[in-house]
Design a protein around this nucleic acid. Structure first.
Ligand SMILES: O=c1ccn([C@H]2C[C@H](O)[C@@H](COP(=O)(O)OP(=O)(O)OP(=O)(O)O)O2)c(=O)[nH]1
Ligand SMILES: [Mg+2]
Length: 618
DNA sequence: GGTCAGCAACG
DNA sequence: CGTTGC
DNA sequence: GACC
């Protein structure tokens, strides 16, 4: 019953023109059909109303006022209705049948011009209805005195293409190696306490501290003001051939603002540049719900990752893991290596593998390194046993062990390994959500029997909304701050008596948080043995425990690394500030932030935008 | 050339 | 302490 | 293996 208001923070950053200013493919001068200009003058004079029925919006981009006025007059002259651009919104073209665009304006600039969500939506949705044409269509028509075919000047298709590209760019922008520079402020402990003093509900604090931070994206207001000026001042290009390189000024504007890095301010709170923050995936939402469009890449790379992991190459495997996550979240199927751009966590080595996969369908490294010779096969096989990892797997394989059957007789297994071996196949199986819910119900029932008012949340991949789960992770606490105390032992006892729990893997009772890691089975015919993880925590640690137990593991590690950067530590117990470290070693633990009973409070303390569980699936 | 999360159980 | 797991 |  923890309530966390849903604030979906999908602010869309103005697609920043980081890509090379691609030459206007549709260079009007090259493509325009060459039509003899004979006899244009008298036809024009006849005043044929060949634009009858056309309502024509004029995009001010690269068109000075004088030019817009001139065009408007001529449109009227030939029976059309000119539509001026008003209130800085594309909505002023709502009724348009046509929109004309200056001949040299790159398609990219048109898309970038539509920077607000409303304008983007308008542009996207209007493509089937409105004909976007180069203004050459008008001038040709004027000179010829007849209405030229729009098709020859249409840029709808190019716009559609560019919109898709911009969406990808926008995504890239968020995940790029280095990005933008604005600041977010991190509240100090003292500030927070003041907040707490004034509060009378958790939600309020969360709302309160929103204003100073830029919620992880470029402030659209900032950018647009720069553009309006750009727009008004731009008188340069007027007639059909001055090939002025416009645009690209925004970039300079932005980089001149770079200065703000890490600034410490008084009264304990300090600011952190967004560019730093954006390097941590915990500051970014994972693309929840959307499908992995890059399985053709992630599947072979996963294989490579697993090989490295089973060979004990922990950090190399982690590097692959991050790269895979980046590819999973990429909004577009990658067909060519260039599509990857400078996606964070994909460096030269992995990129070369991607290239190879795209070209050959496979990667030599995958084939070579993952040669399924019998030793490697055995290592991989052993690593899938709960309680066995690279060290043990390699040791056994080197001792010429090859099969699961040999293990029980030829090596000494510890408790967890015995159980892991016993349930080898069941544990490899993933659990459907419906079954997770049945298990949750069983544990919940037993717990509430022992103590009412408990707060019980199923976390892990289940809480992140995954369709299947590797295990069941249940978090239990009590809002009164003390009634969780005598629960752990009795709960396990109860669940054992009902024969729901079948094996224990490890039990930790020594700290404030109690943890059970074991095996359970629903009382049904053919039901499988499932791994079950239960933690019972004091309510003062509820927020940190919930955050931790919801994961994902990568998300946690990123958030903890970010905390580290802020001279904090984040664990399943607490978020501490003013941690002193020398080199790697912690000299002082610092002090914990008090009352972190919600996840939101933790994000807030760290100056991070709140992320829904589903958006933490990195 | 250093860092890559932070903690806890098991043996 | 080394290994494994969450 | 990526990034600082
Ligand atoms: O190395 C780890 C492993 C797990 N966790 C946290 C995050 C994770 O979400 C939660 C539960 O762990 P589990 O292994 O069950 O991961 P999961 O996210 O639930 O995935 P799965 O579907 O495999 O259970 O514990 C970590 O912080 N670090
Ligand atoms: Mg889990």
């Amino acid at each position: 019953m923890y309530k966390e208001r849903k604030v979906r923070n999908r602010v869309i950053a103005a697609a920043e023109a980081k890509s090379p200013p691609l030459p206007p493919v549709s260079g009007s001068s090259t493509i325009t059909p060459t039509i003899r200009k004979s006899g244009s003058i008298e036809e024009k004079k006849t005043g044929k109303k060949f634009l009858e029925g056309a309502t024509i919006g004029i995009l001010p981009l690269n068109n000075c006022n004088a030019r817009v006025t001139l065009l408007s007059e001529r449109i009227t002259e030939f029976g059309g209705v000119p539509l001026p651009y008003r209130k800085n919104t594309m909505m002023s073209f709502d009724k348009a049948t046509h929109i004309v665009v200056n001949f040299e304006t790159p398609i990219k600039d048109i898309v970038t011009f539509c920077r607000t969500d409303a304008d983007k939506a308008f542009l996207r949705d209007s493509l089937p209805k409105i004909k976007y044409v180069r203004c050459k269509w008008l001038s040709e028509s004027f000179t010829k005195g007849v209405r030229m075919s729009e098709d020859d000047y249409s840029i709808n298709a190019l716009l559609q293409e560019e919109i898709t590209r911009a969406e990808v760019q926008e995504h890239l922008h968020k995940y790029r190696r280095s990005t933008s520079f604005r600041d977010a402020t991190v509240p100090s402990n003292s500030q927070r306490e003041t907040n707490l003093a004034k509060k009378d509900g958790e939600a309020k604090i969360a709302d309160k501290s929103q204003p100073p931070k830029s919620s992880g994206t470029v402030s659209p207001a900032d950018v647009s003001s720069g553009w309006k000026r750009n727009l008004n001042e731009d008188d340069s290009s007027d007639y059909e051939d001055s090939s002025g390189e416009v645009s690209d000024e925004e970039e300079d504007l932005d980089s001149s603002r770079e200065k703000e890095t890490l600034v410490r301010s008084g009264s304990g709170s300090f600011t952190v540049s967004d560019s730093l923050k954006e390097k941590y995936i915990c500051a970014q939402a994972s693309s929840s719900g959307t499908k992995n469009l890059n399985e053709h890449l992630t599947v072979p790379l996963e294989k490579l990752m697993n090989t490295h992991k089973s060979q004990g190459q922990e950090f190399r495997a982690m590097a692959y893991g991050k790269a895979i996550s980046a590819l999973r979240n990429f909004p577009k199927k990658i067909q060519r290596a260039e599509d990857v751009g400078s996606l964070r966590n994909i460096g030269g080595s992995i990129l070369s593998k991607i290239t190879e996969i795209l070209e050959n369908g496979t990667c030599q490294k995958v084939d070579n390194l993952c040669v399924d010779d019998e030793v490697n096969k055995a290592i991989a096989l052993f690593c899938n046993i709960h309680g066995v990892s690279s060290k043990t797997a390699i040791k056994w394989a080197s001792a010429k062990l090859r099969t699961l059957e040999e293990l029980s007789t030829k090596v000494t297994l510890n408790r967890a390994q015995v159980i892991g071996l016993k349930h080898y196949h069941d544990f490899l199986d993933r659990i459907p959500r419906s079954e997770v819910e049945e298990i949750e119900k069983t544990v919940k029932g037993a717990a509430l029997d022992l103590q009412k008012g408990l707060e019980i949340v199923t976390c892990g991949s289940y809480r992140r909304g995954k369709p299947t789960c590797g295990d069941v992770d249940i978090l239990i606490s009590h809002p009164d701050g003390k009634s969780h105390r005598n629960l752990f032992g009795p709960l396990l006892e109860k669940l054992r008596t009902s024969e729901f729990l079948t094996d224990d893997l490890s039990i930790s009772e020594e700290s404030s948080q109690k943890k059970y890691l074991g095996v359970c089975r629903l009382p049904k015919e053919d039901s499988k043995f499932r791994r079950l993880d239960i933690i019972v925590v004091p309510y003062c640690e509820f927020g940190c425990a919930l955050l931790y137990f919801t994961g994902s593991a990568y998300f946690n590690r990123s958030m903890r690394a970010y905390a580290h950067k802020l001279s904090m530590t984040l664990s399943h117990h607490s978020l501490n500030r003013n941690v002193v470290r020398m080199k790697k070693v912690k000299i002082s633990d610092g002090e914990p932030f008090p009352n972190l009973t919600t996840e939101k409070a933790i994000f807030e303390c760290m100056g991070l935008p709140y992320r829904e569980p589903a958006d933490r699936d990195h």
